[in-house]
Design a protein around this nucleic acid. Structure first.
Lengths: 361, 361
DNA sequence: TACGCCATTTTGTACGTACAAGTTCAAATA
DNA sequence: TATTTGAACTTGTACGTACAAAATGGCGTA
């Protein structure tokens, strides 16, 4: 899908969406675009041709190419539509979050447009661009790779320029300071780790995904718990990974760690339940019993935690409630009941749910 | 106006209008057209490109260019939005179905509007009304209470009047005969029951939700399996319930049945995995072990089946594949590659997945 | 000042080439 | 027999060239 003419097309579309060109304003001539993109005129014409067909531009022979006046750019009447952008749609706790938002919004007569980024910055850009082209009243967004530099900030600023309110859940981009609903992940990581320490564990390994803020914060809590209890943190104590690696790296590193000679860790703190479940395969393979030989704490208290072979001790995530309250907050802003500048961030306190995957040493 | 590409375009259009090429029939290849009109390939592509845009033709890379089936007047402006109406959004297998549709549709540049009916006819009406008010290109619908009289048929006829194509999944309203993707639930119920019969079970109880066609068909299969194996069907052999009762009635009736004096059933066929899981609580309560004391077959092969205490023998449901193929079928209709009148229904064959919840008597 | 002319710029039409990518089907291979 | 390979054909992307047709604006002339 990443052809040259598509690149040209998307770039020009982004100029329109971001307001760099106003309706009826002339854009660069074909020859200038040829220069600008270093492609042939044929390619430029192909890109422009499609944009004309889709109603973004119109051409006049001899005069130039112009930005079309798009009826729905002037947002007079509302379609009562809310966009929801999450990293995933069908996996893990996301269906529950979406359900919370959906049930509230539909009870208020709003429709939901769904989009997912698969935790790819590039896809987040596509989502935002698409949604900016529609007449939506507001957005609920779960940030993509919130711990890394995000090149889509322009689109968020564009949302604000277009007076489209949005709230963020699970994490926020620190540069934006939008209204948000998050967990206190630092405290969650602390509680999970402290639970193991209080149960007598001295060698605990933590596995965290560090390309989003949730993982980074959970790791911070993990470190603080160690500090406060005078437990050392060795290089092998923390295994970090990113989205691409989540299917193999934690498993592989843990396997190496547990099969190494010397003293073996007796406790594991996991980034989330999904990782914890996948690590159960590793412990089974190494003939280590959970929790007799090794204790394990998950995070999010998802369905998986209760449905797995060994029911997981985990940290509760508000899920449906977060979705519902995010929707409520968004509608408050849309209806003028609240002001996005002064709205205090909602922070949910984590709670430990003790099940069968942890025990005293 | 009498340019070369216009001549080519009008000539090809006339072939269609005069019926020299039928819908879905391949027209000359680009090279043949180059020969035929003595023009360059560029000119041919320009002509065909416009005809594709106007909905007269469609192209398939590697196969050729085809005459579109066009009953559509090609609405002026498309927002590239597809509505998805399901009974539930976040529960059970629905996230997987939605993901399949979402990933395909978003790769084709479409957005998704989600709505759920919670299996309430009244809410289905609201959904359809809302969606009819938006400029959507098509709909994927999972019928609500498909086994009962549906008072929203008018809205579906309205969809057809507005030339908004739709496909149905999981079940169809028999009066409408829309393009559909369903499972052979009768066969599924038969296979589930036969599996128990073949394992030596003689007293089998079936629990079915009978306000949707899936449940009714699964029950039919259950009955046929009994007939074909000369097993009697007593009043207590089948427990039926509807959506409102699903939280308590199957559990309560099974509890009564199992605690009654006399011979106890040794096998249970469930409407779906959700019910099966909830019945595990009943058997545990009555101190009956699964599968040692009683075998149990679920349906849909959901995540639950593999994640539960006792891993469930179940019937496979296509889930993501069904979502994806429903989306594909819908786009084919929208683009004129297929027409709703002649499109054959897709019926998935059920498959038995044997796990730990069943064994020989 | 008003008008016509013309060079310049811009999009439109039309030709050409080359290679990539997907489909089909028959021949070769295991 | 079933599977793989590959040639042939189809549409897709991308480069190039040339000239036509429409709009614009500056210049000289009436």
């Amino acid at each position: 899908m990443t052809t040259k003419y598509n690149l040209v097309k998307e770039t020009i579309k982004s100029w329109i969406v971001e307001g760099k060109v106003a309706p009826h304003q002339k854009i660069m001539s074909e020859n200038e675009l040829v220069e600008h993109f270093s492609v042939s005129r044929h390619t430029v014409r192909q890109a422009i041709g499609e944009l004309v067909n889709e109603g973004w531009l119109y051409r006049e022979q001899g005069r130039g190419t112009f930005c079309a006046y798009r009826e729905h750019l002037r947002r007079k009447h509302t379609d009562k539509m809310i966009g929801i952008v999450t990293t995933y749609i069908s996996d893990y706790i996301f269906p529950s979050i979406i359900r919370g938002a959906e049930s509230f919004l539909s009870s208020k007569g709003y429709s939901i447009i769904l989009a997912s980024t698969n935790n790819q910055i590039e896809e987040e850009k596509n989502c935002l661009q698409t949604l900016l082209g529609k007449n939506i009243d507001g957005l609920i967004i779960e940030p993509t790779r919130s711990a890394m530099y995000n090149s889509n900030l322009d689109y968020y600023l564009q949302l604000e320029a277009n007076q489209i309110p949005y709230v963020m859940i699970n994490a926020t981009y620190p540069q934006l300071q939008p209204p948000s609903l998050t967990m206190d992940d630092e405290l969650g990581g602390y509680i999970a780790t402290k639970h193991l320490i209080d149960s007598g564990h001295k060698q605990i390994v933590g596995l965290f995904k560090t390309d989003d803020l949730q993982g980074v914060n959970r790791m911070k809590g993990f470190v603080r718990a160690h500090r406060e209890h005078q437990l050392p943190i060795t290089p092998s104590t923390i295994i970090s990974f990113n989205t691409e690696e989540k299917e193999w790296k934690p498993q592989q590193e843990l396997r190496e760690l547990l099969s190494a000679k010397g003293s073996r860790p007796t406790g594991i703190v996991c980034y989330n339940d999904q990782i914890a479940i996948s690590l159960l395969d590793v412990t089974r393979e190494l003939k280590l019993r959970v929790p007799e030989d090794i204790s394990m704490v998950g995070y999010d208290d998802s369905l998986l935690a209760e449905a797995s072979e060994v029911k997981l001790t985990s940290i509760k995530h508000p899920q449906t409630i977060m979705g519902e309250e995010a929707a409520k907050m968004l509608l408050d802003i849309i209806e003028g009941k609240a002001d996005r500048q002064t709205l205090p961030p909602v922070v949910y306190k984590p709670e430990l749910v003790i099940r069968k995957s942890t025990q005293r040493v």
